[in-house]
């Protein structure tokens, strides 16, 4: 047999099934495939999102996310690598809060991305002062973490999971932006529906995301109108 030589970027079976994820929807879980091209396009958008947030090269960042969401988080990791931003990782669950706590205490973090309500409760359980811990960092938080952060006087960005993508809303609010070249987001009876516009490995047509919200002026607003 001869050596195996392959270009993973070349169109073909492998590039078209670069990873299989499990889309976690309120109606149940659904396996779906992502291609390397999907990841590359998502990486380009993730980079533009980080640049909009003001992420800078060379300064450490804490990225919180669960391993089973790797195919969604991966473009964000790629973007940070491309931007030369060193990042430390932890899982968004209470038992891993000491790890987040370590990064928050020991680094001057330019940003904390993916902060969850469960981590916040666990940090409070460790006796931490959220404001003191996070005031010098840009915070991109999941919806369940936002009220607590705002209560202590912080102004987080909202990081909204909508099916297989994230949308981001600035601290000034006014709705979350998303990759409009990749996705069409509509609302129907108060639920966000997602349709893929680009040729993704797994196309979605009006996917019921289970996320309550509405869309106006190309921005996502979480919650009922």
């Amino acid at each position: 047999m001869s050596a195996i030589v392959f270009d993973p970027r070349a169109p073909g079976e492998l590039a078209n099934r670069w990873a299989i994820g499990l889309l976690r929807l309120p109606s149940g879980c659904q396996p779906y495939t992502v291609s390397l091209r999907d990841i590359e396009r998502d990486t380009a958008w993730a980079r533009s999102a980080f640049e909009r947030v003001g992420i800078r090269p060379g300064e450490p960042l804490h990225l919180i996310g669960t391993g089973c969401d790797n195919e969604i988080l991966w473009p964000y990791e790629n973007a940070l690598i491309a931007m030369k931003v060193p990042f430390g990782v932890a899982e968004p669950v209470a038992i891993d809060a000491p790890r987040s706590d370590m990064f928050l205490r020991r680094f001057r973090l330019q940003a904390v991305v993916g902060l969850s309500g469960e981590i916040i409760e666990a940090l409070l359980g460790l006796g931490r002062d959220l404001h003191a811990l996070l005031r010098d960092s840009t915070v991109l938080a999941l919806p369940d973490a936002l009220p607590r952060l705002r209560d202590v006087g912080l102004s987080p960005w909202a990081m909204l999971p909508v099916g297989p993508m994230y949308a981001f809303e600035s601290p000034e609010r006014g709705g979350a932006c998303y990759d409009e070249s990749e996705w069409l987001v509509e609302d129907h009876c108060g639920e966000l529906l997602l349709t893929s516009l680009a040729p993704r490995a797994t196309p979605f047509v009006r996917l019921h995301t289970g996320v309550r919200g509405h869309v106006s002026e190309r921005r996502i607003h979480i919650g009922t109108p």
């Binding site: 090269p57 060379g58 450490p60 990791e77 940070l80 690598i81 030369k84 931003v85 060193p86 990042f87 430390g88 990782v89 932890a90 000491p98 790890r99 370590m102 990064f103």
Partner: peptide
């Protein structure tokens, strides 16, 4: 530090 891509950590 900018040479680092990824910071993993021990179980603690």
């Amino acid at each position: 530090p900018s040479e680092i891509s990824f910071m993993g950590s021990s179980s603690g």
